[in-house]
Computed example of a mutant assay.
Amino acid sequence: MADFRRHIPTIIATSAFWILVFGAAFLFGLRRPPAQPIEILPPPTIGVKNSAPEPTATTAPLRVYVSGAVRAQGVYRLSPNSLVEDAISEAGGANEDADLIAINLAHPLSDGEQIYVPVRGEESPPPPLADKDAADSSRTKTFDLPDEPIDLNTATAAELESLPGVGPKTAALLIQERPYSSVEDLLRVKGIGEKTLEKLHPYIKVD
């Protein structure tokens, strides 16, 4: 017991020493600035420029004049890569007596083009118009119309060909289908529809 008492001062001194050491280390750790985060940078690029994407060019719409056997003749604006079929649709569609077989519906359009839709039995559609002034002054085909209505049962082939939309083939069919009891009998002739009959009505008769 006496020996233990002799070592008490040494134990106290040793304990105080380690307390001071650990205390100093603790205080030093609190005062040390926090470690900076490590930033990982991408590798440098050589010969590559960061440029904004180039704006895409906008294409102007096509202006197409549609005439003939359509519901609404006129100039229409269509998107690029449009076809003849699209132009006819913009014009309200083709009439009942339109001869769509005579034109290429899959033909790609170009700006300023004229699309003429003929009537069934029409021999020679009008040539394309060169400019807007010509289109304004001549929107429909012209004919040497008869001064008075002609009789469908007695008219010659030349007289029948003077009717709007009637060519040699249609005139021959009109003569072949005789006799007629009324003007409406023309509807039984191949290529003659309601629209064509409406155009012919002022120039024909049946006696």
Rank of each mutant, 00 (worst) to 15 (best):
K132E: 04
E113H: 05
P9S: 13
F28K: 11
P37V: 08
L100R: 06
F143S: 00
L83T: 05
L186E: 03
D136Y: 12
P44Y: 13
T56P: 07
A72C: 10
P80E: 05
A91T: 03
Y180P: 08
S79L: 10
S162F: 03
V48S: 12
T142G: 02
G191D: 10
L83K: 05
P33E: 14
E85H: 12
G47M: 13
G29R: 08
A155S: 03
A91S: 10
V189A: 03
P9C: 13
A171M: 09
E96W: 15
L83R: 02
L173Y: 07
P42M: 03
K49H: 07
E122C: 06
V206E: 02
T45H: 09
P146S: 09
W18I: 15
L129N: 02
D147V: 00
P44R: 11
P126D: 06
Q36M: 15
F17T: 14
P80F: 08
L187D: 08
I103G: 03
P108Y: 07
A135V: 09
V119T: 03
A102D: 12
L83M: 07
P126Y: 01
S138W: 11
L187W: 14
V84H: 05
R139N: 06
L174Q: 01
A155M: 02
Q114K: 04
T14F: 07
V119Y: 00
A98H: 06
L100I: 10
R188C: 10
Y65A: 02
E122V: 07
L62Q: 01
G92T: 04
L160N: 00
E54R: 05
P37L: 10
Y76P: 01
M1F: 11
T58W: 11
H201E: 03
T58K: 08
L174C: 00
F22D: 13
P108M: 12
A171V: 02
K199Q: 09
K49T: 09
G121L: 02
V119C: 05
Y65H: 04
A2V: 10
G68Q: 04
L186F: 12
L129C: 10
V21P: 12
E122F: 04
Q114W: 04
V21H: 14
